[in-house]
């Protein structure tokens, strides 16, 4: 289980104790709970059930794509 979708943080709100992020998921912009310690506008995150549970590393993503290209030879 655990459907997660990537999105870009476009805003941050800190309501004493509970941090929410405004995340752009494709054409959808939605407020989600932050389960992240440090997060900045411009970061990419994984949203699961209305919660940002993880950041996405751009470098690692490129690395994986590079690996795919390498193995497949495409």
């Amino acid at each position: 289980m655990c459907l997660g979708v990537p999105g870009e943080v476009v805003g941050i709100e800190d309501n004493n104790e509970l941090k929410t992020l405004r995340v752009k998921i494709g054409g959808v912009i939605r407020d989600v709970i932050s389960a992240l310690d440090k997060v900045e506008v411009g970061d990419y995150v994984i949203v699961h059930a209305g919660v940002a549970i993880s950041k996405i590393s751009r470098e690692e993503a490129e690395e994986t794509l590079r690996l795919l290209a390498e193995i497949s030879g495409v």
């Binding site: 459907l3 979708v5 998921i25 494709g26 054409g27 959808v28 939605r30 949203v47």
Partner: peptide, 12 residues
Amino acid sequence: RKEVAEFLEMLG
């Protein structure tokens, strides 16, 4: 359409 696909993917 891209907007539709993205929205639906979010919801599964």
